[in-house]
Design a protein around this nucleic acid. Structure first.
Lengths: 216, 216
DNA sequence: TACAAAAGTGACCACCTGGTCATCACTACT
DNA sequence: AGTAGTGATGACCAGGTGGTCACTTTTGTA
């Protein structure tokens, strides 16, 4: 048998989780190419051959690992979108922002990998994963903005795509500032407690509201 | 002599430029660690030893190369800031945005290196260069915002740091969308002609104005 | 032309990488 | 006890890396 994932699936839960955790750590620290299979197996205390039997090759390991994480990311989006469909648009934006913060707080390593992937064109599977992620979040935002325009909570004269882009920019940077110290730019967002983050998120959506809101 | 930059400085202009151009290309394509000295010298048609005599080591080459680029980036900021100090704040923001677009159009490879550096913590000299860049742009934005608050073009009740952060977010993402296809998100900014970009930039500052402007 | 200084060279080095595979250890079921 | 199947192992491989240095070639000058 050359390289089925069957073997890995049969492993005891505890070991499976340890393998994934250690590999995630390595990719988060070093990105894809600089990540070292040797270091991973050394830290795990298993033989190199085992890892290759589990996943076939380095890319297989990464695909398995990050694919699971993306699936986990997509779940909470739907929940927020489907629930609270009657609440204020800008409040929903604020909720989405905080949901994002919750995700990167729960999965900081996965988020670090995602950030590294953003601008590294030769990151394997980059196009597949990035388009999957951005398609999900764009679809999510588009529906919210559409509803808000129909219900008159947002100016009707604006360019829809630019509005989505604008919202995306602000949300992305907010999350990045929470996770990367050098990008927090004096806002005190990095590693802040929940209360502080909630305040800043509110300030930000206030900027958004009076820029996009009907009553201006 | 082990490793003075003297040798490189003495080279004829044409050769010096070719070396820097080829090295910039390599770093832009592959990032720092994946960039290969062997490929650079192969493309240049010179011996590996020469490059090490010029710059000492890989890091020396990168430092020389990117340091020059950063210096070039900082110049136009001052010009815009000092001139037009009487024109409307949001128009100046629009001008700054377009100046950014001009820079990444003139130096697309340098911008690609910068983007790769953003989230790659183990990029050599990352902290030095990033803090230098962000300090310059924050100082620039802070002065503009300060003046605009004093002259009453911006609401006085807003959090200064969050406002700067907000402006930074929007401008950063705008530039990224111009340069990276996967980040343009349906706006059609990537590789667009000047006219299109000017229109989108205007739409964006319009969002900013009615969010931050006095007359809201 | 002679000679010294500067610039250019590329074989060579130690090191690390992803990946392979023959072999071993353990279990389960006849 | 015999045997088939599963998982674990780590020495080994080819290839690429940044970096070195003894050597040759070119250049400027007296």
């Amino acid at each position: 048998m050359t390289s089925t994932k069957k073997t890995f699936e049969n492993l005891p839960d505890e070991k499976r989780e340890r393998v994934l955790a250690e590999a995630t750590q390595e990719f988060a620290e070093h990105g894809y190419h600089q990540a070292s299979i040797n270091r991973i197996v050394d830290r795990l205390g298993i033989a190199k051959g085992s890892l290759f039997k589990y996943f076939g090759n380095k890319q297989g390991l990464f695909e398995y690992l990050f694919g699971h994480a993306v699936a986990q990311f997509k779940k909470p989006l739907k929940v927020i979108r489907d629930a609270n469909s009657d609440t204020d648009f800008f409040e929903r934006m604020e909720m989405s922002l905080l949901a994002g913060v919750d995700f990167i707080t729960a999965h900081p390593l996965v988020y670090r990998i995602y950030l590294k992937m953003l601008f590294q064109e030769n990151f394997p599977l980059r196009d597949k994963f990035l388009s999957e992620i951005r398609q999900a979040s764009a679809k999510y935002l588009r529906q919210l903005v559409n509803e808000a325009m129909k219900s008159g909570q947002i100016r009707a004269d604006i360019d829809l795509e630019m509005a989505i882009f604008h919202l995306n920019s602000v949300m992305d940077h907010f999350l990045q500032a929470c996770a990367v110290p050098s990008l927090d730019g004096g806002t005190g967002l990095f590693d802040a407690d929940r209360k502080t983050i909630e305040n800043k998120a509110h300030a930000l959506t206030d900027f958004l509201r009076h820029g996009l809101g009907t009553i201006s």
